[in-house]
């Protein structure tokens, strides 16, 4: 018997990831081609400079570490499990993950409050920003909830989330890994696909244009209209 529940699960965990990824790639590429100008972090520091620090810094330090953790567990599940073999190391990993998760949540809330409280910042808040904040709140909120309620996430992520994610990447989705998970985890996963799918239509595109050549280019930049090497 194939139940409605089954179709729903298939849709959420088997189909949604592909919809999200397709939108992500097509959307970001097309936006870059048509409107490169619109790729900007749309900083609002100029309009409000004090609360800004308390939102942006925790938000970014937190999210970058947490995302980094997800990537490591995805790429090197065996190493993570081996590391967790010692309880002490497991505690260290779990606690730091939780701390950075809370940092992200704190930053996100501060940033959101700042957006709503300051009149000047509200004038540069778009509908996309509001949807994005809602999605991120669900994402980070559910993440922190999972970290607290479903202990030892660093281990079970490596053991069951990683195989699921790989099954998606290898175009052979095996949703059995996720079906057994608690609701909060499922929410975290589905919402992640929403964030990815919505990504091209938000300011999140700034993540794709983070400056790296800066670290190795010469300090000064000169452009020649008559083509490189044409001298003066």
């Amino acid at each position: 018997m194939v139940s409605a529940q089954h179709y729903f699960d298939q849709l959420m965990f088997g189909v949604a990831p592909y919809l999200a990824l397709i939108t992500f790639f097509l959307g970001t590429i097309q936006r870059y081609r048509a409107q490169a100008f619109s790729y900007s972090s749309l900083s609002s520091q100029f309009l409000e400079n004090k609360r800004h620090f308390w939102g942006m810094v925790p938000l970014h330090y937190g999210i970058l570490v947490v995302l980094g953790g997800h990537v490591v567990a995805f790429m090197f599940p065996r190493e993570v499990l081996a590391w967790n073999g010692h309880p002490i190391r497991l505690y260290i990993l779990e606690i730091s993950a939780l701390v950075f998760g809370l940092l992200t949540l704190l930053g996100l809330v501060m940033a959101l409050v700042r957006r709503l409280v300051y009149r000047k910042i509200r004038t540069v808040t778009s509908l996309a920003d509001i949807v994005l904040y809602a999605l991120l709140l669900v994402q980070v909120g559910s993440g922190v909830y999972v970290a607290v309620m479903c202990s030892w996430g660093s281990s079970w992520f490596a053991a069951s989330a990683t195989p699921y994610l790989w099954s998606i990447v290898t175009l052979d989705p095996d949703i059995s890994y996720v079906l057994a998970m608690p609701f909060a985890v499922k929410l975290h996963i589905v919402n992640a696909f929403l964030v990815i799918g919505f990504f091209p239509f938000t300011r999140l595109v700034h993540v794709l244009v983070i400056p790296n050549p800066y670290l190795w280019r010469k300090p000064q930049v000169v452009r020649w209209n008559r083509g490189p090497g044409s001298g003066a």
Partner: peptide, 17 residues
């Protein structure tokens, strides 16, 4: 120019000509 040297994206530049 300090502005050019500081730009992480390399968006600022001095025209050669």
């Amino acid at each position: 120019p300090a502005c050019v040297a500081s730009c992480p994206s390399g968006a600022l530049y001095k025209r050669g000509e």
